[in-house]
Structure formats: C-alpha cells, structure tokens
C-alpha cells in the first residue's frame, strides 16, 4: 500500500474532496426558473398549443382535406369545408381543435400535406371558463401563427421555421441540434 493510499484511508481525504465540491456549488449560478414570474423557455421541440399557417392575409393554407382529422388519435379536430373565395379548390370554414381533448401528439402537423397546422410551444392551457373556452377556433389558430412569425424573426429558438418550411421536404425535416 502506497503512502497515498494510507493517507486516503486514514485521513478520509475523499470526504474532504466531496465537501469541497459541494462548497464550490454554492457559487454556481442557480438553475431554477422562477416560473410564475419569469416565462419558461421551452425546448424548441416542445409541442404546445397549435397554430395555423396563412398563405396570405386572411387566407389559411388549409385546404380542408380532412387528413388531420383522420390522423388525430384523440379525435379532437372538427372541420367544415367551404369553397375558396379567391380561386380554385376549397378552404376550411371552421377548424376547431378541442384543446381539452388534444394529447399534443403532433400527428396533425406530421400528416398535413399543405403544411398548414403546426404545434407551437405554449403550454398555458389553464382557463377559468367552461370546457367550451378550451376550443381553439380558426381565428385563434391563425392569430397564434403571427405570434410565431414574430418569434421566427427574433429567432428565439435558434431555428428559422420559415426557411425550414421553404427549403426542406417536409417528410425529411430534421431540426438540427445547434
């Protein structure tokens, strides 16, 4: 047994090492987010309340193809179709997601062929109203889109969603980690 081992065994230097480590940690910055006072920055892949992309002002990208309704495992999307006022095809007249039923699986966003419905980051679902007030209708969803547009400009999560949408094949989108 070397001298070093003897010192280790009988003077309990490992205990002192441990205590030095914890003492150093007192001066490390705190990792707590003071949640109700500070907003939480969610991980950029976090799935929260949805938003609906608009092709142009007042015209949603949704063509009311019903794919998302079929894909939805929680059966929370209600959708009615109408003719497109400006051209060919059709758009959604009503598009309501019942957030009380939604499980935020993201299938609707995955299957959407027109890249219309997306999941945002907001997790603030609590409400004082009735069950009805948890239904996200079309104006709400498109309104959410514009808040996320701002976010894209500010690049809050390090990803430019607009660019990702423009240049990538949707089935192969992989948000690069940093």
């Amino acid at each position: 047994m070397s001298t070093r081992d003897i010192i280790r065994k009988y003077l309990f230097t490992e205990l002192l090492q441990g205590m030095a480590f914890t003492f150093k940690n007192i001066f490390v910055p705190k990792v707590t987010t003071l949640y109700p006072y500070e907003s939480v920055q969610m991980p950029r892949r976090a799935r929260g309340i949805h938003y609906m992309r608009e092709k142009e002002e007042g015209l949603t990208a949704c063509t009311a193809c019903n794919t998302c309704v079929k894909a939805c495992p929680a059966n929370c999307i209600a959708l009615t179709k109408t003719k497109c006022p400006t051209g060919k095809g059709s758009i959604a007249e009503e598009y309501t997601i019942d957030l009380a039923k939604c499980i935020f699986c993201g299938y609707c966003s995955d299957v959407c062929p027109y890249d219309a419905i997306h999941l945002g980051h907001s997790l603030h679902l609590a409400t004082q109203g009735s069950r009805e007030s948890m239904k996200a209708d079309l104006p709400f969803l498109t309104g959410n889109y514009y808040t996320y547009l701002d976010e894209e400009e500010n690049d809050a999560y390090g990803v430019n969603y607009g660019l990702v949408r423009k240049f990538s094949d949707k089935s192969q989108v992989r948000l690069q980690e940093d």
Binding site: N25, I26, V28, K30, T32, L34
Partner: peptide, 13 residues
C-alpha cells in the same frame, strides 16, 4: 437556503 444554494436552487423565496 444553504441546501438550495448547494443544489443550485434558490430555496425558500
């Protein structure tokens, strides 16, 4: 407070 600081938390606040 001390245990909070050691565990990088705030403790009572």
């Amino acid at each position: 407070k001390i245990i909070g600081a050691i565990q990088n938390r705030y403790g009572v606040k």
